[in-house]
């Protein structure tokens, strides 16, 4: 990864963020339906990231120690456990299953 690549990657990512903040926000405000859509986007997009981080292994889907760790986290979240307990339990479960 050269300096040029790092800068190109950074400029692209920053542009997308700024485009969303200015262009996307303007669009959302202009069309009333988009305002409610905007409030639902975090749930949809963050869930997709969770799915990818939990089940993706390269280009395939897998259920492994990591998935078990996230499943334990889900149960603790449902039981309204503190967030620190949730992430420590996820890591501990995953690590133990990999022993």
């Amino acid at each position: 990864m050269t300096w040029t690549i790092i800068i190109l990657l950074a400029v692209g990512v920053a542009s997308l963020r700024l485009l969303g903040m200015y262009g996307g926000t303007a669009l959302v405000r202009r069309v009333p339906m988009f305002e409610r859509l905007g409030s639902l986007i975090p749930a949809a997009v963050v869930s997709a990231v969770i799915a990818q981080l939990t089940f993706a292994s390269g280009k395939s889907l897998t259920i492994d120690a990591r998935s078990a760790g996230v499943a334990v986290a889900a149960v603790l979240i449902w039981r309204r456990a503190p967030i620190i307990v949730v992430i420590l339990a996820a890591a501990a479960t995953t690590a133990l299953l990999r022993l």
């Binding site: 990512v13 997308l16 963020r17 700024l18 485009l19 969303g20 903040m21 262009g23 996307g24 926000t25 669009l27 959302v28 905007g38 409030s39 986007i41 975090p42 997009v45 997709a48 990231v49």
Partner: peptide, 8 residues
Amino acid sequence: RFGLLAAS
């Protein structure tokens, strides 16, 4: 996705 979140 950060653009989408920024719009939101």
